[in-house]
Nucleic acid binder design. Sequence first.
DNA 1: AAGCTAGTCAACCGCCACTCC
DNA 2: CGGAGTGGCGGTTGACTAGCT
Length: 331
Amino acid sequence: MGHHCCSKQKVKRGLWSPEEDEKLVKYITTHGHSCWSSVPKHAGLQRCGKSCRLRWINYLRPDLKRGSFSAQEERTIIDVHRILGNRWAQIAKHLPGRTDNEVKNFWNSCIKKKLIAQGLDPKTHNLIPSHTKNNGCNLPRVLQHQTCTPFTMNSHMRVGETMNPPFINLPPPPPPPPLHDPIQIPTGFQYEDPRTTDPNSALLWSVKDQIPHATMDLAHTSSLENPPISSFNPLGFGFLDDNCLWPSSVEPLEAQQNPQQDHQNQNLQQQEQQQPKMYEMDFDGRNEEKGPDMGNAYNRPNFDLEFMDSTLLPCGIFNNSSSMEQLPWDC
DNA sequence: AAGCTAGTCAACCGCCACTCC
DNA sequence: CGGAGTGGCGGTTGACTAGCT
């Protein structure tokens, strides 16, 4: 069958020879690839354009980083996968020099097995039921004592799927308004400042996929009215420590935080100070011209990437890294 | 040395979304 | 509006390799 562009032509399949690689590299570096379907013809290759594109992206591109994945890259993949699922192209964008194919292969061949060995469902990052009998009672103390907040985010999900709760930090909420100035709650977003409410209340956030990866639909639920999600991961995956969520009350997750992480946290705080308007989000998608266009960001097809860039990566991963390091990685 | 098995990874397949006519 | 062409993506396959028996 094949692709439309391939079905008409007599094309070669299988592994690429060094000569073919050379032809392709030579052509792309001198002419670019404005139209992949015409590349094989002009480059003198008996391949379909799609095959050329794949070969270039996955193997010949000059900015590719070859070799095994670092521990940091591995952690990034796990953390981003927890939020985005099998969206390898999006995940790969957070790993400079890595391709979606590479990430996918690495996940399937290594990370997946590690997670399973940890008793974690690689799809949801939750504990596999058969491993939940101890309910986390024998976890390291540092993971046991944390106040966990269930978090769901289904920006990529289809109806009926259960989202893996990500370990993520959202931008902090706006400061609590004066009592005489009730906060304006946009449609679909309910915010309750945890500093003014029961500290044990569970916040349930969800990001719904309304337009491709669009509007955030943030809702909270009180632990009194709606019990927290029952199938949470006792390892702490997918839950927000309230200290992480609200930077105003940030405390070190663990005493042994290393200097590098301290430095990263300092950088983060500096960024927050430099970009205070970032938090003035409008979840209706209206742009109030108050700095970075967060509202629109959630409504753009590349929402995930920007959302991750602006929220998760600088803080969630780093804050979480120490937790991840608690796990025995014995690959 | 030969056969088997499991792991890795490049490449293909099929689908979807977008653009253009 | 609808079909063709194309790019992009995720899932899957199959060739190759290393390790074991």
